[in-house]
Amino acid sequence: MTTLSMAAERVRARSGARTFLSRYARSRSAVVGAIGLLVIVVCAVAAPLLAPYGPTAQSAGSLLGPSGSHWLGTDDLGRDILSRAIYGARASLTVGCGSAALGALIGVPLGVVAGYLGRWTDSVSMRFVDLLLAVPTVLLALVITAVIGASRINLIVAIGVAAIPQFARLARAATLSIRDRDFVVASRGMGATTPDTMFRTVLLNLLGPIMVQLVITASLAVVVEAGLSVLGLGVPPPTPSWGGMLQEARGYLYQSPTFGVFPGLCLAITVFCMDRVGHGLRIAVGVESAGATTRAAI
C-alpha cells in the first residue's frame, strides 16, 4: 500500500468518526445517556476514592436514616448505603459488560461461520441457537449457577451463555446478506483465505449492529444479574451489588422503607443510560431497532 493511500485512509477514518459522533449527538437523550454511563463507569473504577466508607466497613448503628455523615443512611449491618451503592456499580457493570462480551465472543463467530459456510454447519449451529433461545434466560442462569456456584465469573458465564443466540442470529443474518455481495466475492477472488474473508471483511461490516446489540445485551444482563441477586443467587455477600442490596432491603421493608429505594434507583438509571446509548448508536450506525425494546418482565 502506498503512503498516499494510507493517508487517504486516515482521513476517511477521521471523517468517519466525525460523522458517527455528529449523528450520535443528534439525539439529545443519547448524549445524556452517554454522560450518565460515563459517570457510572467512573464510580465503579474510582470507587475507593469516591466512597466515603469502605463497602464492608460497619461504621455506625444499623438502619439509620439519611444524615450528614451517612447521606443515604446505613443498612442492616451498619454499613454506609452510599458507599455500597458506589461499589455496587462494579458488580453490575462487570457482570453486564462481561456477559455481553462473552455472548458476542461466542455468538458472533458462530453466526458468521454458520452464515458463511451454510449447509450442515448452518443447520447444526442454528439448531443449537434455537435451543438456547427457547429456554428462558433466568432458568438457564439458575441451573448454571447451581452447578458451578455463584460468583461474579460464574454469573458472567451463566448470563453470557443465554446471550449467545441474539449475537449468532444477528451475525448470521448479516453474513448472509453480504456473503454474495461484490466486495466479498472480490476479496475471495484475490486469493484471501476463507477464515480471513470471514473474519475480516464480513466482521468489519458487522461492527455497527454488533455494537448496538452489545449495549442492549449489557442492559439486559444488568437487570438479570440484579434479578438473580434479589432471589439470593447473585454475587455472594459481602461484595456489594445493587440487586444484593435490594435483597437485603427486603428484610426491612417495614422498619426502613428507604433502604430499598436507592439501589433500585441506581439500577433504573443504569438501564436508562444504556438504553439511550443504544438508541444513539442505532442512529449513528444506521441500524434498525432490534429486540431490546421487546424485553418482558423477568
Partner: peptide, 27 residues
Amino acid sequence: DDQAMVSALQSGDVDGATYLEFNDVAQ
C-alpha cells in the same frame, strides 16, 4: 422465600409464620 413470608405476615395474608430468620425478629 422468607422475605415474602414476612411481608405476608405483616400485610395480614397469614396469621403466623414459622421458620423465621433471625433478622426478622427485630422488625
